[in-house]
Simulated scan of single mutants.
Amino acid sequence: MYIRPLDKAPALSRPLGAPAPGPPLSSVIGAAARAARLRARLTQAEVANLTAISVTVYNRLERGRMQPSVPTLHRLCAVLGVSPNELLGYPHSLPLEGESARNQLLHRVHHLDERQAQALLQLLPILR
C-alpha cells in the first residue's frame, strides 16, 4: 500500500504549558469598540462620522475584520471616551487625565443605579 507524503510539514503544537493563543487583536479591538459605543449610546454611523471614517470601515473594525491605524485608534478613543488600553483589551490601566477623565467620571456617575447613587452621595461630604 502506497501512502502519499504530505505536501506540507505538519503544524507543530504549542509547547507544553504555553498559554493558548487569545483572540486576534482585531477581534479584541472590535468587541471593545462595540461595547464602548453602546455605553456611549452612539450608532455606528455617528462614530464613523465623528472619527472621519466611512460607516463601512467602522462596521468592519467593530466586527474584527480589520484593525484601525494608530491615528484612527486615537480618534476612536476620543469619540468613545475610552483609553487606548481599553480598546486594546487592557481595561485596567492608569486613569485618564484632564477632560477625558472628567467625561469618563460623568459617564460612570450617570449610569449608577439608585443604591450606588445614594452611597456616592453619602461619601461626598467625607471626601471634602
Score class of each variant (00 low, 15 high):
Val57Lys: 08
Arg34Glu: 13
Met1Ala: 08
Leu94Phe: 10
Ala78Cys: 02
Glu97Asn: 10
Asp7Trp: 00
Leu16Met: 09
Leu76Asn: 07
Cys77Asp: 03
Leu61His: 13
Gly30Phe: 10
Asn49Glu: 13
Ala9Cys: 02
Ser27Asn: 09
Ala18Leu: 03
Val47His: 09
Leu25Arg: 12
Leu106Ile: 09
Leu121Trp: 05
Ile53Thr: 13
Leu96Gly: 06
Ala101Cys: 06
Leu105Glu: 05
His74Ile: 04
Pro15Ala: 14
Gly64Cys: 06
Pro91Phe: 06
Ile126Arg: 15
Ala40Cys: 10
His107Cys: 08
Leu120Asn: 02
Leu73Gly: 01
Asn59Trp: 04
Glu97Tyr: 03
Leu42Met: 14
Ser69Tyr: 00
Glu114Gln: 11
His107Pro: 00
Asn103Asp: 10
Leu120Ser: 03
Gln67Thr: 12
Leu50Ile: 00
Tyr58Thr: 00
Arg102Cys: 11
Met66Gln: 15
Gly89Phe: 07
Ala32Ile: 01
Leu6Trp: 01
Glu114Cys: 03
Pro24Glu: 12
Ala9His: 03
Ala119Thr: 11
Asn85Gln: 14
Ile126Gly: 01
His111Tyr: 05
Ser83Thr: 15
Pro19Phe: 01
Ala20Tyr: 07
Leu16Glu: 10
Pro68Ser: 03
Gln118Met: 10
Thr51Glu: 05
Lys8Thr: 10
Pro24Met: 03
Tyr2Ile: 09
Val55Arg: 13
Arg14Gly: 02
Gln122Trp: 05
Ala48Leu: 08
Pro23Thr: 08
Ser54Ile: 02
Ala119His: 07
Leu127Pro: 00
Arg63Glu: 09
Arg4Asp: 08
Pro5Met: 05
Asn85Val: 03
Leu127Cys: 13
Pro24Asn: 01
Arg4Gly: 05
Pro84Asp: 05
Ser100Trp: 00
His107Leu: 13
Gly17Phe: 00
Ala31Thr: 11
Pro10Glu: 15
Pro71Gly: 01
Lys8Arg: 12
Leu112Met: 12
Arg128Glu: 15
Leu12Ser: 14
Leu127Ile: 13
Pro71Ile: 05
Gly89Val: 07
Pro95Glu: 06
Leu112Ala: 04
Leu16Gly: 02
Val70Gln: 09
His74Cys: 06
Arg108Val: 03
Arg60Cys: 04
Ile3Asp: 10
Val70Ile: 12
Leu73Phe: 13
Ala52Ser: 08
Val28Tyr: 09
Ala31Ile: 01
Leu96Ser: 14
Leu61Trp: 01
Gly98Glu: 07
Leu123Thr: 09
